[in-house]
């Protein structure tokens, strides 16, 4: 049994409900499919404290349409990279900070706040990262609907065109 199979077996032994949602992507890569916050926290706690995934590499924020995805990349001593995915609805993007387990996740989580508009609870205080202080509030540039063409860099305001009423045929007069 290879290192990847052992990881999958270990996770499924502890969480049988994840059957079919944990898979080997390729050599040295194991993926745990999107989990909601409560389930994600249980799996992360198990991986970090009992399954030997003690190295945190990064968090990747993704925009999946109605939901935001957060892919936490961890690895163990056998160099298996685990992509643990969490999802949260775009309207209520609440997630918990993992800084208590992995202190080096701090800036990655601040990036999720600035670029994706995630609300990271229990995130240690500090300066924002990476956007400037005068960045317009409520603008999350890595969300798919945000278009850099509508940002006025002189006034630092975001001015999307007014929504067109389909009943009027969408043509300006």
């Amino acid at each position: 049994m290879g290192a990847e199979e052992r990881v999958v077996a270990r996770i499924l032994e502890r969480f049988p409900v994840l059957e079919g949602r944990v898979f080997i992507q390729k050599q040295q890569r194991v993926v745990v499919d999107y989990l909601v916050r409560r389930d994600f926290e249980k799996v992360l706690d198990f991986l970090a404290h009992d399954a030997g995934f003690t190295t945190f590499h990064l968090v990747i924020g993704v925009d999946n349409g109605d939901a935001l995805g957060f892919i936490y990349v961890l690895s163990n001593e056998e160099n298996v990279m685990l992509l643990l995915k969490e999802k949260a609805p775009k309207s209520k993007p609440y997630i918990s900070s993992v800084c208590d387990i992995f202190p080096n996740a701090l800036w990655h989580e601040r990036e999720l706040v600035d670029l994706f508009g995630a609300v990271v609870e229990n995130l240690p205080p500090g300066p924002r990262y990476p956007l400037p202080d005068l960045w317009p509030a409520g603008n999350y540039p890595m969300r798919k609907e945000w278009n850099p063409a509508y940002l006025d860099k002189k006034t630092m305001t975001y001015n999307p065109p007014a929504a067109v009423d389909p009943a009027e045929g969408g043509e300006s007069k």
Binding site: H57, L58, G61, V62, D63, I71, V73, N104, L106, W107
Partner: peptide, 29 residues
């Protein structure tokens, strides 16, 4: 040091998501 790139494709000629984590980003911590 370690340089990580994450690429997600959507079947078109443009990527859906690219994430770059350069080595310095890890070492600043």
């Amino acid at each position: 040091g370690e340089d990580i790139h994450y690429v997600r494709s959507n079947g078109t000629d443009k990527p859906d998501r690219v994430r770059v984590r350069a080595a310095s980003e890890a070492n600043w911590h």
